[in-house]
């Protein structure tokens, strides 16, 4: 297997290798305080006022940044605010810049899911209807419930974190319960539910590529909606494309990059660009498209 491919006048590293390096770096900057696992303490410095672009529980002892989905629910469920301009602003800015490249390159839980999928087992395809579940999760559990269901003080609870998020159970729940005897005595039916969801997620990810990311992740839903306008994007050169279909077959997210390069499911992993024999697909930061992406446009020009 060649990791470095020769271009016209230069050598460049395959996206799959670049992506793994960036994913490991992102995992590192998201969770640098590994010593905290020993005492079961959380990092309490100023970095926690900033949101991680990917899904990474802020109750993980090693976490350096706040989880954007947790932060969004915390602010909208607070007494003083019912909408978080700060977190929505961060998500919009990151989403317009990178789209779902965050899922493919920067999300620590995304890396975890990819590693699980490497476990030898039969591999299944996801039925297309399931990809819409994450939008329901986003609206119901992240937006509506924290605002609508409040206690006597007017405070809402982070419904997604409480009832669904397997990242919280894995990164926060298990390590903290292992290090705090007192916490272990408070385990109840909610923890059983969350452990069940975590186990289902793990099995799902072994069988289906990025199962949680594609079916349940509300952060993926937000960035997916912004994929159409993201500055970092896939561009298809219709002059070079020979319609061989290799890109569609290699895509683990089951996207056809030629037909829908801005698909909400595309995580910009670059596998299609690596496999294209004609070099017709590129991943790039571009405000304005310089490549002819439309086949009808090409036909008209001829």
């Amino acid at each position: 297997m060649s990791y470095i491919r020769a271009g016209r006048n230069k050598l460049y590293m395959k996206h799959s290798i670049k992506r793994k390096i960036v994913q490991l770096a992102a995992f590192g900057y998201s969770n640098p305080y590994l010593k905290n696992f020993m005492g079961g303490k959380l990092y309490q410095g100023k970095w926690k006022q900033f949101c991680n672009p990917g899904l990474n529980c802020y109750s993980c002892p090693a976490a350096s940044l706040a989880c954007p989905i947790g932060a969004l629910q915390a602010v909208s469920g607070s007494v003083n605010f019912k909408f978080s301009f700060y977190v929505v602003g961060i998500l919009l800015a990151v989403g317009v810049l990178l789209g779902r490249a965050v899922c493919g390159w920067l999300c620590p839980f995304g890396l975890f899911q990819e590693l699980l999928h490497k476990f030898p087992s039969p591999k299944l395809k996801l039925k297309k209807a399931f990809i819409y579940v994450k939008y329901v999760v986003l609206v119901v559990f992240v937006i509506v419930l924290p605002i609508a269901v409040t206690d006597y003080m007017g405070m809402g609870k982070p419904a997604f974190c409480q009832y669904i998020c397997p990242a919280g159970t894995l990164e926060g729940g298990i390590p903290l319960l292992l290090s705090h005897k007192a916490l272990r005595q408070t385990i109840g039916s909610l923890f059983t539910l969350k452990m069940t969801i975590l186990i289902v997620t793990i099995i799902g990810c072994v069988l289906i590529y990025r199962f949680f990311c594609r079916v349940f992740c509300p952060l993926g839903a937000i960035y997916g909606l912004l994929n159409e306008i993201s500055i970092y994007r896939l561009e298809i050169d219709a002059h070079k494309c020979v319609s061989c279909g290799k890109c569609k077959r290699i895509c683990k997210m089951e996207v056809d990059p030629v037909k829908t390069p801005a698909s909400a499911e595309c995580i910009r992993c670059g596998a299609c660009a690596d496999t294209c024999p004609e070099g017709a697909i590129c991943l790039q930061f571009r405000l304005k498209s310089t490549i002819m992406t439309d086949r009808t446009e090409m036909t008209n020009e001829r």
Binding site: L42, Y43, Q44, K46, K48, Q49, C51, C57, Y58, S59, A63, L65, A66, C67, G70, A71, A74, V75, S78, N80, F81, S84, F85, Y86, V87, K157, P158, C161, Q162, C165, G168, T169, G172, G173, L176, L177, L183, T186, I187, G188, L190, F191, L193, K194, M195
Partner: peptide, 20 residues
């Protein structure tokens, strides 16, 4: 809003870990 985010993120979130 930043202080709300910081306050939530520096303390153990019992809901997030399945104990809330």
């Amino acid at each position: 809003e930043v202080s709300v985010v910081l306050n939530k993120a520096v303390n153990i979130c019992f809901e997030c870990i399945g104990l809330g």
